[in-house]
């Protein structure tokens, strides 16, 4: 029992530090990739190819004044960024990150808590993460913040339905809610991937994932061209940083979910070992999100709701119904 607790604590600390570092590195990658797509150079001056820009940004964030506006609800204002960051990492607790491997003769399972309802837990925790922007927007006594909070509630209530319904069809096929079962179901190579059986669910899940992680076509809760910075208007320093660590960690989580559920997870892929395969898949999804950001404009809130309720949700329901019929026959 003690060994189990110690192993879990070690895994949790490792996941927390590695994903937080990757989330920081993600900002550098995002600027580089966007610059590449827009034929610019991006950060170049600090260190070789601007690699130390990350450290410079970190120092700036840590030393900046932590400003709390007068008239704001201080307690909620201070808690809100922690909700975003914490739930993003709690969601990762139920995600199997790599295949099992042996270290010093001990089999290591790279999952912090193997729940048999893993996928629901991850989605529920990521949904709870939206309380961060909501509370931040409402607590800061700023009109732009309040608009951001109102949009958060609207976005959340719209896409959450699509996420649940789109993931339902693969759950019906696999017959389990455990992410490890999803992975094992697709063990037979590339032909067994669920994306071939459920292409529509994959597209719907990705679209809902973009809304969930607040990425560009749907980043209307902090759309700087319309509402300054939305929920983050009054935030500075490390509290602002926590929102962004949370957002990038959520992007990584969505990448893991999409690869585990639809793209074969951490099974060996041809000559590639499983661990490398899933890292490549997650990197592709991360790149895909930046790619979409470089090529698509924002959409308006009413367009997002129109899309979610009138297009995506009926499609998801039809998909679930057809899957059910095919499975019964």
């Amino acid at each position: 029992m003690d060994g189990y607790i110690i192993a879990t604590v070690i895994k949790a600390v490792l996941v927390l530090s590695i994903i937080a570092a990757l989330a920081g590195f993600g900002t550098y990658l995002e600027r580089k990739v966007l610059a590449f797509m827009q034929r610019r150079l991006g950060p170049m001056h600090v260190g070789p190819y601007g690699l130390l820009q990350l450290a410079a940004d970190g120092i700036k964030l840590f030393t900046k004044e932590d400003f709390i506006p007068s008239g704001a609800n201080r307690l909620i204002f201070m808690i809100a960024p922690m909700i975003t960051a914490a739930t993003a990492f709690i969601a990762l607790a139920a995600v199997p990150l790599l295949p099992e491997f042996k270290l010093f003769g001990v089999t290591v399972k790279p999952i912090i808590s193997d729940l048999d309802i893993g996928i629901l837990f991850v989605l529920g925790m990521m949904a709870a993460g939206l309380y961060g922007p909501l509370l931040a927007g409402m607590a800061q006594n700023n009109k732009w913040g309040l608009l951001g909070a109102a949009r958060t509630a609207a976005v959340f209530l719209s896409y959450e339905v699509v996420t649940g319904l789109s993931i339902l069809a693969p759950i019906m096929i696999v017959g389990s809610l455990s992410l490890i079962d999803f992975n094992n179901y697709q063990a037979g190579g590339m032909g067994e991937w669920l994306i071939w059986k459920q292409p529509l669910a994959f597209v719907l899940f990705l679209i809902a994932g973009f809304a969930e992680t607040n990425r560009t076509p749907f980043d209307l809760i902090e759309n700087e061209s319309e509402i300054i910075a939305g929920y983050a208007t009054e935030y500075s320093g490390m509290r602002w940083g926590m929102f962004f660590i949370g957002e990038y960690a959520n992007m990584i989580t969505i990448g893991f979910l999409a690869s585990l559920v639809f793209l074969g997870g951490f099974n060996d892929w041809g000559f590639l070992p499983g661990g490398l395969a899933i890292i490549l898949k997650v990197s592709f999804f991360f790149f895909f999100m930046l790619w979409v950001r470089a090529s698509w404009p924002h959409i308006r809130p009413d367009q997002l709701m129109w899309l979610c309720w009138k297009v995506l949700m009926p499609l998801a329901v039809i998909n679930v119904t057809i899957t059910g019929f095919v499975m019964m026959v």
Binding site: L120, G124, A127, L130, Y131, A153, F156, L157
Partner: peptide, 11 residues
């Protein structure tokens, strides 16, 4: 409980 009430309280 988590999913339902997170959504309900959000409304």
């Amino acid at each position: 409980q988590l999913i339902v009430y997170v959504g309900a309280v959000m409304a």
